[in-house]
Design a protein around this nucleic acid. Structure first.
Lengths: 200, 200
DNA sequence: TTGCTTACTTACTACTAAGTAAGTACGTTT
DNA sequence: AAACGTACTTACTTAGTAGTAAGTAAGCAA
């Protein structure tokens, strides 16, 4: 169209974002540099600055993309049409995938960024808050619906329970990195059996 | 005695360790430097190197001290003589204190170091594993005893449940940093009501 | 063909990081 | 008084950090 969007241009920009995301999840925001990205992509560090002038913009772009993914995902027919327990299962699957990631277990966005939170630029802090809030609200809705129709069980407010479940999931990926996947399995199984009625 | 252990020497060493610990919990291992410590303590960076030649040794010392504290704490009469629910409560209090820390909510050791885990020197990784394992084992014992005498309720293996609870606690402090203390309160309340029988 | 845009590279600045070697002031020991 | 150990400072090296300014090759547009 008007923007001819040459394939290579788009590619490099996206490849930078993909790699930065990977490095963020693997090492944290303060422990990866433009040099790491540049070396891996076989370009010069200045090329990264061309696409993302500052590290703050790069970091914000990573979170923003993840927020867009969340919004798209939760609106997908193959997600909205599931029953509450299936939606919960779909969420757990996302974390299972991360735990089994190719280059060693990754943490989730929240876990990776929350640890460095106080050192993050303000725009990144704000984006992260938005992301976390929207995810919690979505899960709270799923839990409320599930308890209403008897397919899920828990005590307390759905929002509190959602916050607790997401917190546990975020933590469980960090545990997986320190203690291996078995601990992660234990924790997920524990979550699973507590939320689903024994009868079902 | 043989080592005259001049007061100032001991003081500076300890003050370095205290401040490094504080910075680690606030900013993560990769986001504090010898300069930060030196400036705050009004000495030169080389003075820090004198006491802790490398950052790896400083980091290891922080974890090791925390491990010693744990071993001492769990053996204290005022802890061992408590009932299982009281021991659980004592553990939760440690986290509540961190959440309400003076200079903004701190995360726990595990949360702070797990995020940076892949960038940590091997000795620090090993010390952290030991610390986490001992803490989980201790809590598993408390949970098992509590379920046996009917004062605590949960499903699954005590070790799995202990891992889940500690994971949730670690995560909850990260949440507190991002979303404020109220979310933290929700999560702790949720944990509390689930573990303690409604009747009690 | 001239000019403009895109996507870089080269070469740099300014700064910070961990770590080291040599020197010094001071108190204790001999 | 001489020697020594402790606890530093001064001055440095090496290696990285984010970020910038200027140049360039390739492609498209008038």
């Amino acid at each position: 169209m008007s923007t001819s969007a040459s394939a290579t241009a788009f590619d490099t920009r996206t490849r930078i974002l993909n790699l930065a995301e990977e490095l963020l999840l693997a090492r944290g925001f303060n422990a990866f540099s433009y040099q790491h990205i540049a070396k891996e992509l076989q370009v010069k560090p200045a090329a990264i600055h061309y696409h993302y002038p500052s590290k703050e913009e790069l970091g914000t772009a990573i979170i923003r993309r993840q927020l867009m993914r969340l919004r798209k995902w939760r609106g997908l027919p193959r997600v909205t049409e599931l029953t509450p327990p299936q939606q919960l299962e779909a969420l757990l699957d996302v974390y299972r995938q991360r735990a089994a990631a190719a280059h060693g277990p990754q943490v989730c966005f929240f876990g990776a960024l929350a640890a460095d939170f106080l050192t993050l630029p303000a725009p990144m802090q704000q984006e992260l808050r938005t992301f976390s809030e929207e995810l919690t609200q979505w899960l709270a809705g799923v839990l409320a619906a599930g308890r209403a129709d008897g397919s899920l069980q828990f005590s307390g407010h759905p929002f509190s329970k959602a916050a607790q479940v997401l917190t546990t999931l975020a933590g469980s990926l960090q545990v997986a990195r320190v203690h291996g996947q078995q601990q992660f399995q234990y924790i997920l199984k524990q979550l699973h059996t507590e939320l689903l009625p024994a009868a079902a």
